[in-house]
Nucleic acid binder design. Structure first.
Lengths: 337, 337
DNA sequence: TTGTAAGCGTTATCAG
DNA sequence: CTGATAACGCTTACAA
């Protein structure tokens, strides 16, 4: 079933059918009605490939996800789902492309083959070869996270620096003197992964501003790592009375570790940070934390990308989100020594 | 940059360039080399839309994911990643389509617009309108899970029935008399979601076969629900000495609930079931369970779909996977009363 | 071994 | 208000 078939059944030319559908040219009410009826009867829909070829755009965007290897976190998953939902609202389909290692071919296929009108890049690094490649290809893209050249490209990001600082201030206000940061994995920091970097920066600065003592550690994105991490931390530094974390996946393990050490939360130890709402609520007791606003980030990213696609010349848009800290039950003044 | 440009730079016709690339016609070594050099210099890749239009296939498959609403589980996420990876090995791209509720337009856009060569349907229900729609459209598809008409379509599934039965037998062999099943949410059962249904069937049958006493409960896909579920279960039925579960997301909560009730695992209570490896290993103590073989399922699904696409007439393939139970540390003979 | 030309199904331009 | 017709960029008979 194609447009020609519809045209002949409705007794009009193919162009009239096309215009009746797109509304880009006036069509008499009678013929439009007739055409639409035929279309409904036949269950016709324009062929996407033909349309893409003729229009020069695919009505599709690519979502480049991080390598699946180390296991994607729940946040990442929620993000993928939110992007798809947001794209749907713009009548855009989403092509998924894994990145890293052996998956370069997929990325290249999509970019060089002009399979999409734009790209959303998840988990972008400060200097990211994919961003470089996209820039040279001229394909519009928005990064989740800053790249090194903050100004040129589009991005949406969480203000990890400010958020972690807020957490530090919160603990300082409660009277804590020595606090720890449980960051994302060491490799991430070394690879210049923005959130890990800026969490550390924000931590160091805020701790200095308040005259506190700090211990910063990295931790694999896993419950078990969180457990040993907390145990190591508190055996080598028993004076630590609170921690802030940006590592949600380690949270369940941290909960176990603290319990094992006899540190009740929040009476004997305070925990806060920036993590997905689901993780915060699943913690015992519920975690006082800045909730990562996944849906909002996805919405803004798609919106930015859609603008960029329709007006490639427009100035690059940036969005830095800074959600409030939700006060739940995991922080309190430190225990008297 | 298009094929004509390459052709003129290499001093040949467009068809020769096409054939040099596809290998579907002999091309002299000299010209092929020349063409490939020009292509490399220009960084040329065939336009995917044009190719799709000419060839009548898009080299893309759709992955229809469950509604994002209730939160996707880690298994689902791993599955998405595995499908993308497997598809990449077949040089296929993956279009993501949410399903359910407001997302029907996305599905319809993809199916009716012929945007893909085939579809993988996740979390299929016994009577699934999407499967019906695909059958009538003639688009090849493979379902993850059976549909009601088991024979006609392609599917790959886990043998939940047999697997849960194996778990029951394992507990029975250890001497347990009264055991519980912690199933997926009630609504899933009511909607005729296969795994929930068949887990229950396998449980009931195996318990009967061994002359045990059973309690079957449903539980939301959440840690907190797992906690209250286990607590309710053991306060109303303290005689239960072990449980089998297919609800991985509830596992962390079940761990907490058991601890709170003073039921040490495995000394005072046994736990087993079929869940993702990651969840099994994250349990304390590590869970004796059948590990959901996500990657294998994804591989087989893509393989089946690829076959189906290239040979639409061939008989429908079915794959019923039945991974072994990994013996870890969460089951033991019941405590003497 | 290579070139010519006819599609593939739309959209968009140009006439009427 | 509507109909021819030329793109869009590629694949693939059909010729040479």
């Amino acid at each position: 079933m194609n447009i020609g078939e519809i045209a002949s059944r409705a007794g009009v030319s193919r162009s009239t059918v096309s215009y009746a559908l797109s509304g880009k040219r006036a069509v008499s009410d009678a013929t439009r009605r007739r055409i639409l009826r035929v279309i409904a009867e036949a269950g016709y829909r324009p062929n996407a490939s033909a349309r893409a070829l003729a229009e020069g755009r695919t009505r599709t965007i690519a979502l480049v996800i991080p390598p699946a290897g180390p296991r994607l976190t729940t946040i990442q998953l929620g993000f993928v789902a939110s992007i798809v939902a947001a794209a749907g609202r713009h009548e855009l389909d989403v092509l998924l492309s894994p990145s890293g290692g052996e998956h370069d071919r997929s990325f290249e296929r999509i970019v060089a083959g002009r399979r999409v009108d734009g790209v959303i890049l998840m988990e972008v690094r400060m200097r990211d070869p994919r961003a470089t490649r996209l820039r040279e290809s001229g394909l519009p893209f928005v990064a989740i996270g800053h790249t090194a050249d903050g100004g040129t490209g589009c991005w949406v990001d969480l203000d990890y620096e400010g958020l972690v600082a807020s957490c530090v201030h919160h603990l300082a206000d409660l009277g804590h003197q020595t606090i720890a940061l449980v960051n994302r994995p060491q490799e991430f920091l070394e690879l210049g992964y923005g959130p890990a970097r800026r969490a550390l920066d924000g931590f160091v600065a805020a701790v200095a501003a308040r005259g506190l003592t700090r211990i910063a550690v990295c931790c694999a994105d896993e419950a078990m790592a969180g457990e040993t991490c907390v145990e190591d931390l508190l055996t080598t530094h028993p004076e630590v009375t609170g921690l802030v974390t940006v590592n949600e996946a380690a949270l369940p393990g941290m909960e176990r570790g603290l319990r094992r050490l006899g540190r009740a939360v929040p009476g004997g130890f305070s925990v806060t940070g920036v993590v997905g709402r689901h993780w915060a609520e699943g913690f015992h007791p519920p975690l006082t934390a800045a909730d990562v606003p996944i849906a909002a980030m996805a919405d803004r990213a798609v919106e930015l990308l859609a603008e960029r696609i329709s007006a490639p010349g427009a100035p690059a848009g940036h969005v830095l989100l800074s959600p409030p800290i939700s006060l739940r039950a995991s922080t309190a003044p430190p225990a008297r020594r």
